[in-house]
Each structure stands twice: as C-alpha cells, then as structure tokens.
Design a protein around this nucleic acid. Structure first.
Length: 1070
RNA sequence: GCCCGGAUGGCGGAAUUGGUAGACGCAGCAGACUCAAAAUCUGCCGUUCGCAAGGAUGUGCAGGUUCGAUUCCUGUUCCGGGCACCA
C-alpha cells in the first residue's frame, strides 16, 4: 500500500478538529508550558515559505513538550492594525477592517493546511474592540502612573499628587531635563524645576496638569515627524526615500507635532538588569544593551563668547601651542551645555559641534555667518537621522561664536553639523580630534588646528581613542592616566558649579501616536488644553466608520475630520470647566500598542472584566519559549518588556519579564531568477540607400543614433531593433558575457533569422521590407528582469509558462537559449529577500498540495538551523518525501497496484510483534538520545537527519518490529503529526499519539567496549586502530607504536610526546 | 556611518566542550529491476597527482596561539538583519 498523504492528512486534521484535541485548559494537574510565536501581521500577500519556519519550529516544540507531560499553551492570533491596510484602503477604497478580515481568513487557510496544534479558541486580533478595549485600558494605567525613582517602580499618579501636596517635588524631580509641554500657567520654573507644597497648591489646574504630564508613563509632548506638504500627511521612515516621498516624489521635511510618548527611558536600568534573568542569545542582549546605550559621563556648561569680540593669538613653542586672548570679552546670556563621556580630554577640545536643531543657534550665530548657517540648516532639514549619521561626506557650518574652556580660557569655535543629533545627550558635543575619529576628520576637513593631549600616542594621521595613556598639554592633568583624570575633572567642574556627573541613555522615549486611522483610538479627552482620561465605562472607545482616510487640517489623523466622533460624549466628564465641548484625541496608537501585551490576553482571551484574570496569568506566567525574528530585537521586545514591568509594578501580574527564553529564527531568503532582455545594440546593417533615406524622412531613425560608415552603404544604428522586436531574451551564458556574444557569428545569424521571420509574419512591415541585414555588432546591452521562480525549474525557464506569464506580456518573446537556438533557456539567479515584488515567493500551500504537510514541515526544518538565514530551494524536498515513504514501507508492503486508502487491510502490513534484538534496540536508542537532545535545543535539522539515519538503518536491518517502530513514531509525531497518527493507529492504538508518552533513553544499549581510534602523526591523520576503551595509557602507547603504519611514519625518530585523549583520538609527536 | 549576525563540496548543511572536516539530504555519474517509464535498490561522488596502494591540498582572505584550529585570538573582505512612524 502506498503512502497516501492527502487522505491521511485530511482525515486526521478533521478528526483533531472534531475532537478538539488542541483545546487547552487553564487548570491542569500537569506542569504548564507556554510556547509562543511572534504575533504575525496578516499582510495581503499571504504566507510564503519563509513565514511558517518559526511556526513549525514552535509547533514541534509544543507537541514535544506535550509528549513530555506538560499542559502546553500554544496560541495564535493577529497583529491586525497597521499602515499597509490603511494604504490599501486609500488606494482601493476598501475599509481596512474588511481587507484585514480577508487577509486573516486567507492566512488561516494557509496555516491550517500545515497542521499546527494551535488552540484556536484563544485567537486574538488587535483590531477587535473586545481586544483593544484592554489596550486602551492599559494605556490609561500608564497615563495614570509615574515612575518613582526612589522605589524604581511605577506608582499611581494620585499618590504623586498627594506627595506634591505634602512636600512639593523636592524628592521627585522632573524626569526629563526640559519640559515637553510649554508651561504657560501660573508657574515659571526657573531654578532647578522644583516647587514647594505651598506653591503646588497655588497652581491652577492647567499648570498642575502640565506638571503631572512631565511624570506620567504615557504622556503628551512635541516631536518631529516626516511631514509631506504635497500629500498633506505624515510619512513613515520607509515611505521616505532620499528626502522625498516614495509615492510621488514630493519633498519631505521635519515638522513638530503634538505626540504621545511612553516614558520607557525611566525603565532603562530595569530593562538592562532584566536581561540578566532571561535566556536570550548574547547577540540579542547586546543589541538591546546597545540600544538602551547607557553611558556615564559629564554634562559641562561652557560660557559663550560672540564672534566679533574676541581676538586670539597663538604662539607655537616646540610641540606646544600657547594661546592668549587679548580682548576683554562679553558673554552670551546662555551657556552651551555638552554631554561627554570623556571629560578627561577637556584640554584637547578644539571645537564644539551642536545639532542643527539646537535652540542656541539662533542666539549665537553671528551676522556674517547667518546666511551660511541658515543654508546649512535648510539642507539638514531634508535629511533623515539615518542619512545624517551614515553620511561619509563631512558637512558643517561655523556659527561665528566661541565657547570658553573654563580651565584655561581658550576660545573654542562652535560649529553645527548634521552628525550631531538633537535627541541624544544635550544635542551638543565637545570635539576632541586627537581622540575621536569623526572629530578628527571634521577638523581636517575644515582646517581646524588640532591640539595633541596624548603626545606620542597621537600620530597626526588618525585619532587614538585610548583611555590608558598619560595626559599632556593638559594643565593640572598633565601626567595623569586619562581614565583616572575623568573623575578629577568632574569633581572640579562640580566645585566650580558648571558641570555634573551624568548618566545618559541613547534610548529615547517611545513615540506612541500616529496620525492615522487604522489603530486604537486614545481614551483621552481634551478639556481646555488638558488631557483627561476617558472614564473606563466608555471603553472600548471604538473607531468610527469613515469615508476617507485623509489627514486632518493640521496633519492630525483622519479622525480629526469627524466632529460627530470627536464630540460624541455629552456627559459631565467631557465638558470643560470653561464650557463648550471636550474633544477626543484624534491620533491613534502605533502597531506596537496591541503587540506589547497580547501574550497576556491568550491566557484568558474571553475575559470581559479584566485584560486577563490574575488566576490565569499566575498559572501560565511567563512565556517559556518565544520564537521570532531578530528584526524585533529592539522594538517589540523592549516595549513588551516595559509594559510587563509596568503591569507588574501596578500589581496586575506577578512577573516582570514576559519571555523566559527567546529563540530567533533566521530568515528564509528568496532565490530570484532573472531573464535578460536585449537592450540597445550598436550595430552595422547593410541597408539600401533609399530605405535609409526613407527611414530618416519618416523619423523612424532617431537623430544621433545612426551614422553612415564606409561610403553610404553601411549604417550604424543603436536601439533600432528593440523598437521593432522588443522581447528578445538571451540565456545566462550569453547575457553574462556580452563581448563574446557580440562577436558571435551565430548570434548575428540569429538576429537576421529573427528579422526575416518577423518580416514573414508581417510582409507589410515597411521597416523590415527593405534589405536589412546585420553585419557587425559593436556593443550590446541587456536589461535583467526578474521572472517568477515558480515557472523556472531549477535554472531552466519553462518557456511556455513564461509566454503566458503576466497575462501574456511576453507572448511574443524570442528566447535564445544556451546554444543561441531554440533550446534550454537558463536563467540567472540572485539571493535576496523573499517578496512578492521580486517574484521569488513560494506558497507553502502549493508544496503541501504536492508533497503533504508532513513532508513540508520536515523539509523546512531540514533546510538548516532555525536561527540561521538561508535561501529557499524547493528541489531538496524530494529527499524528505522519500524518507517518509521509506518509513511507511517499514509498516506496509509497497503494492504494485495500490488499494484505496479505506482498504487499509492487515494483509499488507509488514510490521510485527517480534522481540527486538540488541542491535535493533541500539539503533532505536541511538535515535532517542540524538533526537530528544536535538529537539530540546531546537536543532531540528540534525534531528531530521537522525530520523533518516534511523529509518535507513532499520530498513537495512529489515526490522519491522513494533517494539522499535512505536517509540520511533512517538518521537516523529511532533515533526510529522499526520503520518505518525495514522501509523500509530495502524499499530492498533485507539487513543491519539498526541498524548503518548515520550520514549525513555536507555544508555545500556549503547555501551561499547572498543573504539576505532584515529591516530595522527604530528597532527596528520595516518591510520585508525581499534583499541579497547578500558585500555590504559601505557597499553595504548604500546599498541599504537607497534602498528605498521605508525612505524612507517615515525621511522626512527624519537617520540617527543604521545597524546591520548580517551574516547577521542591519539596523536604521536616526533 | 553605528550595532548584531554569517561565510565549510556543484547546492542546503553536519562536526554539541580545541581532537577522524564534509553526517544527512539534493543534484550528478555508473549499475540492477522494467518492453519502457515511474517508483525502488546498489555503488561512486571536495580539489589534485596516481593504474593502484598511497600522497599533497582543503572550512571567505592574511596572520597568530596549540601536539592538534571550521572551532580560540588579531586584522581584513563580502553578504544578511536592525538603526526609533513597515511589521
């Protein structure tokens, strides 16, 4: 009987649904285990073979843990809000809810075919009001909380108000240095941003609320966005290409808009500490650590001298530059604040650089420099942060102002440059060219003199960032090792009152609002310019139906266009003290809002009273294994960690790290295929004179693309042919060696045949009817086009399919194959991202249809390590399919004429109840050891190969014994659940294999008494010798040195060293 | 530019702690079965010299440590992911 995967898979999938075998209860005597996939975004393009990689890996693990006796939670759902659906709505007029629903259904169909063990009763969708009610609710918890630095945790904002009433904010300074919102109430913070209890009580409501906003974990402030005037909208970074919008190419500038933020920076230290308690890869921890970017340094205030008023003289005595200032100076009102991790280099500061956005620039730029500075700022405005940092070209402008070194009075020019970003530190740096490569290049480029403070350790050719050498040229620091000087300088600065030690984070607070429709509305109502929470009983605050998705008049989200929605509530809670109507917030939340807590909802997804019941979250607790790509390293993973910590602090859950272990799946890359279309050919043709003139008169020949050569009979043209016959394709060999192709007589003959054929098809073709004959080709170009990988077999193009492809766009294509005739056409290839637009996607459903889900699952795992990126190649799938057929034949005889699957008769079965021999049990237990270990550590590719080895060995041994086969099936069940279930029942079991017990490894079957030792002479392998495992070092030496091969290589040279590693190898050094 | 990862036969990969490089599979070659094909089975299969036995060489590149390096160290090239509004 044949292995009929279609019937088997259909039968069991149906059976599993009917019997609800994947339903998981929140109560169980078994230990719990939580296996989670990263939340998928249901894109319109559907699944390609890259997506299920992680899902299969987690599915195998979930099934494996179930066999090991755990109550396993393994849910799936959709991160369903997002930009693409809204963009699709704008372009096609289909409501995002509708297209999202379609996409989800399509996704589900594809997923179901692969046979996953998800408990679909726990499905969640972020765009479902029943779900986002709780996203909004959590937002309100964050809004109503602040981070108490004393206790290092989130606490209630009402608690903070009580504290203010009692003692002011003396013990709770405002977290950020500058106010996010301008305070225009009755308090003008001047020194230190502190106020007393009495002052607090005198503040009006607006002032109080503005101050509280500076503390809230979810707060409102101002931030820069990519603003596209022409489209009237805010654009995502990847919608901006080279400073213009991807759609339409309109200019994009930075614009400040009111935004919501999450105060994740307050959690920076706890996010760092938490990394020590979780099982993430070192690379992942490093990425998060770098992203948080904690550094310790100093903030230093420099007095500023305006440019006109200084006069500096420099005198060089030996290697030292003496600087003296001869004119009395007047200082600017403001000081320049810089953040530096290297205060020890203060005497090496040769210039300052401030970010082009810095407020100071307006005040300090001198009249002469104003135009230069303005022009430079205009240039920077059009550039993204990434471009600004990636730029190799050095740009900048001098403000004309100078800062003063507080220790020696040296005047330091203040520059602006795009490589300093406003958001990091104070938005200004002190540049030390001898110690920092970027500063060094800047100084060289603008001819700024460089002060050397590290003597011979600076060679003048490149900066040296050392901290380990003694300082020179540094006044009171001379001779002190740099890293020791750091503290000395900081102390001195503190003493002088112009600096302080400062911990800085690269991480910024997370922008939490989008000017879009398709996201969660904020449960916030604005009354007299103050944001108030919408009462919980109004949740969920649902999205309204809209007709258009265009932004509001000031760049707000589309909701701003719907007064009915904005003013929908009439209750007292929504009426401002000044009267009128309170307006709902019109921004919506970003994609990561819903995905920051979804793993909690799975635990108790139908709860209507809470985001998840405490009992459920206590039982399921942390996600034990979380599988997904590294692309989420610093976004989703940090935000969800922060939300978890906040919910923990506020007492809603009892764990403060969401994911105990993280497994990063690699990306499956696409292998794109190319065809090469002939482009311009510069060639000579023989053509009669009359025709040539007629072409010319009728403008068929374009000016400049032809010339007369050799009297008037030979003409040289370009691009002439491609206008008549556009679709001529060259096979890879010829397309990648154009010079040879151009010289090929065969190729020229072919072109002449093509034109002749064309003429036969169209006898009236005026152009061709003249005598046109190719003679010499001077040069040619080709245009590579991607072609759908699904119409290419390996590298050979299916020519008929190609002609039908894209509604017959290439139906007239002339494909010149490898020998320049009408034979095999070979495509070029390139490994790149798998994407619909590159025509290199492969649909898993097609493969499941052809080989079955079990084969597909195992093949995806067999491709390589889960963590590694690798290109997809469908070819190898046959091997895995053969393996399953071979397994099948251990149970059933292969029939020449297969009976129908329903006739699964015992007569064809070859499996038996005989007692297994030791040799057979050795095969089995070797497999148990390897497969169990490999599965546990996610090394699925080697586990699959161990299955293959085991089945090969059993087949060779002609072992069809149930005693061996049954445990093998149980091990296989996580990988290939359908065939395992089928054969499990064939062996006479009536329960499901899902609940079988995993076989136990017994080491006694693997005990060996001797080993074939590899023997090397001087590190080179020369022979193998079989030696008993319990042999002593002396015995081994004796045996080895007596061996003929060893003797031959040792000759008579004395043995210097004899290395014997038990159970490993032997090396003789002579 | 910055941060993280990767590179091993024609291809995907294996080698778990520094100890036989190339397991397993694909592709290829030769053969068996068959009227034939499919399916299946057997053998060969890094490169190179050699009839063979056997030798040399070989894990991106250049060095280093070691009795021994795909594995550790230094430098370097190329490729992939991320860089804060794609998800």
């Amino acid at each position: 009987m044949e292995y009929n995967f279609r019937d088997i898979e259909q039968k069991w999938q149906q059976n599993w649904i009917e019997n609800k075998v994947y339903k998981v209860a929140n109560v169980s005597p078994k230990p719990k285990y939580y296996v989670l996939d990263m939340f998928p975004y249901p894109s319109g393009a559907g699944l390609h073979v890259g997506h299920p990689l992680g899902y299969i890996a987690s599915d195998i693990y979930a099934r494996f843990k179930r066999l090991k006796g755990f109550n396993v939670l393994h849910p799936m759902g959709y991160d369903a809000f997002g930009l693409p659906a809204e963009q699709y709505a704008i372009e096609h007029g289909i409501h995002p809810a509708v297209s999202t629903e379609n996409n989800i259904n399509n996704f589900r169909k594809q997923l179901d075919k692969i046979g996953f063990c998800y408990d679909w009763d726990r499905e969640v969708k972020t765009c479902d009001p029943k779900y986002y009610k709780w996203t909004q609710w959590i937002f309100l918890q964050l809004f109503n909380a602040y981070f108490n630095r004393k206790t290092q945790k989130a606490e209630s904002i009402t608690q903070l108000i009580k504290t203010f009433e009692k003692e002011g904010n003396i013990n709770h300074e405002i977290p950020n240095t500058g106010f996010q919102l301008p305070v225009t109430g009755n308090w003008k913070p001047e020194t230190g941003n502190t106020f007393t209890a009495d002052e607090w009580k005198t503040f009006d409501a607006f002032t109080q609320q503005s101050i509280l906003m500076e503390y809230r974990l979810a707060y409102c402030g101002y931030g820069e966005v990519n603003w596209c005037e022409a489209l009237g909208t805010v654009l995502a970074n990847d919608e901006v290409v080279n400073g213009v919008s991807e759609r339409g190419g309109h200019p994009v500038v930075k614009k400040k808009l009111r935004q919501w933020y999450l105060r994740i920076t307050e959690y920076a230290d706890r996010l760092l500490q938490g990394l020590q308690t979780v099982d993430f890869s070192d690379a992942m921890k490093e990425m998060q650590t770098n992203w948080i970017g904690k550094s310790t340094g100093a903030e230093i205030e420099f007095k500023i001298v305006l440019g006109e008023e200084h006069e500096v003289t420099e005198e060089k005595k030996g290697p030292i530059i003496h600087t003296s200032v001869s004119i009395a100076v007047t200082y600017a009102e403001e000081t320049l604040k810089v953040y530096t991790t290297r205060p020890d280099t203060i005497f090496g500061v040769d210039f300052m650089v401030v970010a082009p956005e810095h407020d100071l620039i307006d005040h300090i730029t001198t009249a002469e420099q104003k135009q230069t500075v303005d022009e430079y700022i205009a240039y920077v405005k059009s550039r993204s942060d990434r471009e600004r940092q990636a730029e190799k070209k050095i740009t900048g402008a001098f403000t004309g102002a100078y800062a003063v070194n507080p220790f020696n009075g040296k005047q330091i020019p203040i520059w602006i440059s795009e490589y300093v970003l406003a958001g990091y530190g104070t938005g200004a740096i002190m540049a030390v060219p001898c110690g920092d490569e970027r500063d060094f290049k800047f100084a060289k480029h603008f001819n700024i003199p460089i002060t050397n403070i590290i003597g011979k350790h600076f060679n003048g050719e490149e900066a040296n960032a050392t901290k380990e050498v003694p300082l020179e040229n540094s006044d009171f620091l001379n001779g002190i090792i740099m890293k020791d000087a750091i503290e000395i300088v900081v102390n001195k600065l503190v003493e002088m009152g112009i600096g302080k030690k400062k911990v800085n984070y690269k991480m910024r607070d997370a922008a939490f609002s989008r000017q879009r429709y398709w996201g969660e509305p904020f449960p916030i109502v604005w009354k007299d310019g103050v944001a108030y929470p919408v009462p919980e009983d109004k949740l969920p605050l649902e999205l309204p139906e809209v007709k258009t998705y265009s932004p509001g008049p000031e760049g707000e989200g589309p909701l701003a266009n719907i007064p009915d929605w904005i003013y929908q509530f009439q209750d007292a809670d929504f009426i401002p003290p000044s009267g009128g109507k309170g307006a709902l917030e019109t921004n919506t939340m970003p994609g990561y809002a819903g995905s920051s807590w979804y793993f909690l909802r799975y635990m108790d997804n139908e709860n209507e009273n809470e985001f998840a019941g405490k009992q459920a979250t206590d039982y399921w607790n942390q996600v034990d294994v979380y599988i997904g790509g590294t692309e989420h390293a610093v976004g989703h993973l940090l935000y969800s960690r922060m939300w978890t910590k906040a919910l923990y602090d506020l007492g809603y859950i009892s764990f403060d790290e969401p994911f105990k272990k993280l497994v990063n799946q690699g990306m499956i890359q696409g292998s794109s295929r190319f065809v090469y279309r002939l482009g311009n050919i510069s060639y000579q043709i023989k053509c009669d004179k009359e025709a040539a003139f007629e072409y010319y008169n009728k403008n068929i020949l374009i000016e400049n693309e032809w010339q007369i050569i050799e009297k008037e009979l030979l003409f040289q043209f370009t691009s002439f042919l491609s206008r008549i016959i556009p679709n001529i394709f060259l096979s890879k060999r010829h397309a990648t060696n154009l010079d040879a192709t151009a010289k090929s007589g065969l190729f020229i003959d072919q072109l002449n045949i093509i034109t002749k054929n064309e003429l036969e098809k169209n006898p009236n073709n005026f152009i061709l009817s003249s005598k046109v004959e190719f003679d010499i080709i001077n040069s040619l170009t080709i245009n590579p086009l991607r072609v759908d990988v699904n119409i290419v077999d390996g590298f050979e193009l299916d020519k008929e399919a190609f002609k039908k492809w894209r509604n017959g766009e290439f139906k007239d294509a002339i494909l010149l194959g490898e020998a320049l005739f009408n034979e095999a056409y070979i495509c070029g290839d390139e490994i790149e991202k798998m994407s619909k637009s590159k025509f290199n996607t492969v649909d898993p459903s097609d493969l499941v249809e052809k080989y079955g889900a079990d084969t597909f699952r195992m093949y995806e795992m067999f491709l390589g390590p889960v963590e590694q990126s690798k290109p997809w190649d469908t070819k190898g799938i046959e091997g895995v399919h053969r393996f399953l057929k071979k397994l099948w034949r251990l149970f059933y005889k292969e029939g020449s004429s297969a009976p129908s699957p329903s006739e699964r008769a015992g007569g064809e079965a070859v499996w038996n109840q005989e007692k297994a021999t030791d040799a057979e049990l050795k095969i089995l237990h070797k497999a148990i050891k390897k497969i169990e270990e490999d599965t546990e550590r996610f090394s699925y590719n080697t586990a699959v190969s161990a299955f293959m080895v085991c089945v090969n060995e059993l087949a060779d041994a002609k072992c069809n014994k149930r005693e061996v086969l049954e445990p093998l099936l149980i091990m296989l069940a996580p990988y290939a659940p359908h065939i395992s279930e089928e054969l499990w029942h064939a062996l006479g079991n009536s329960n499901s294999i899902l609940d079988a017990a995993y076989p136990t490894f017994n080491a006694q079957y693997l005990v060996e008494s001797a080993k074939e030792y590899p023997v090397s002479i001087n590190g080179k392998l020369r022979t193998n010798i079989n030696i008993a495992l319990d042999a002593s070092q002396e015995q081994v030496e004796q045996i080895v040195l007596a061996n003929d091969v060893v003797k031959k290589w040792v000759e008579d040279k004395p043995v210097k060293k004899f290395i014997f590693v038990k159970n490993k190898m032997i090396n003789v050094v002579v």
